[in-house]
Design a protein around this nucleic acid. Sequence first.
DNA 1: CGACGGATTGATATAGATCAAACCTGGTGG
DNA 2: CCACCAGGTTTGATCTATATCAATCCGTCG
Lengths: 191, 191
Amino acid sequence: MMGSAMSFERNEELFAEEEPADYVYKVVSGVVRTCKFLEDGRRQIGEFHFPGDVFGFEPCANHTFSAEAVTPCRVVIVKRAALMAAAGRDAELGSALWIAATRELGRLHEHMVLLGRKSARERVMAFLASAAERQCDAAVIDIPMSRQDIADHLGLTIETVSRTMTQLQETGAISLEGSRRVRVGPVRLAA
Amino acid sequence: MMGSAMSFERNEELFAEEEPADYVYKVVSGVVRTCKFLEDGRRQIGEFHFPGDVFGFEPCANHTFSAEAVTPCRVVIVKRAALMAAAGRDAELGSALWIAATRELGRLHEHMVLLGRKSARERVMAFLASAAERQCDAAVIDIPMSRQDIADHLGLTIETVSRTMTQLQETGAISLEGSRRVRVGPVRLAA
DNA sequence: CGACGGATTGATATAGATCAAACCTGGTGG
DNA sequence: CCACCAGGTTTGATCTATATCAATCCGTCG
């Protein structure tokens, strides 16, 4: 299954809500956010997608969310119809897609617990923990997205995210090395 | 594709988190909630499932959420492995499953906006609107679940749900006919 | 009738939002 | 090389929506 490659600048839109959902996307490099907006501008970032992640699954003809580049990024796109047809023929591929979709269901379930029931501190720690996990539990982790992005992902305000991070630093849980880089303490982010 | 039927009492557990996820479920009658718990008892209800709904999709061997009967209910269960195998053979079935899964993704995305960005009033109105929609926009809608269930679905407390409903009544948006029955006013629930 | 499991209502506390300045930092141009 | 600027971040002061704690109420069922 091959697709065509595309590049996007920071903050460029890969696709918008309501647009025809003709393609499925796979991140090659960089980071992509998928989001939904309310009329008054409130934004919820559903997920950040990293290299290797596939996104853009939709049940209907049009996108129900938009996708934007968090950093400059490259993606490959595949015609959805072609992909679905191929999945019908190739059991291997079909199963891979199924796994990707159900895994995403699991992540969203988990994130709903965070949004519905966790405190700001827990949210930020969970965010950092997942970032650390993606980076193979490195001691120093990169945060490629802005505080605003983090806030809109965690259902908080930018100020609360910022304050919570400095509090985590004060309690020794992390140490901030510039705003986009965090050293996670020996204590780790255990809950 | 046939499965076996099962019945559950109100509040009975269909399956628990961590249990082997050997079956996929379809609601025949009654209502089921899927939920996740935090160690300290906080609960997030991901979705309520109504007759016709299919649930229990998991990427791995074990369930990542639990399911409980909101009302007495009947479900049919199908071996997951058998279902997946059949989907590999029958394109019709495969596509139906795919649609069910992506539709669920869409619902969860929408719900994350609610949990992350909406006010209590908006949450309750959205909840009532979706209940009304499921009941073909009947003028009087049934609420089969408790206030606690609603609260845990909307990321609120039981008290806030209750208060918000009486406020909606005071402003004339709805009228409560007993705690489990609501008449939606002519104004409807337009945002 | 009495009791028990919701549901509602009331009083108060508080986490996080909002409004408003500073504060960096990296890039640009003089 | 430095001053300046713009975007993003942090910090501060205050406000408020919602949580929390605590009765009371209501309806159903024995």
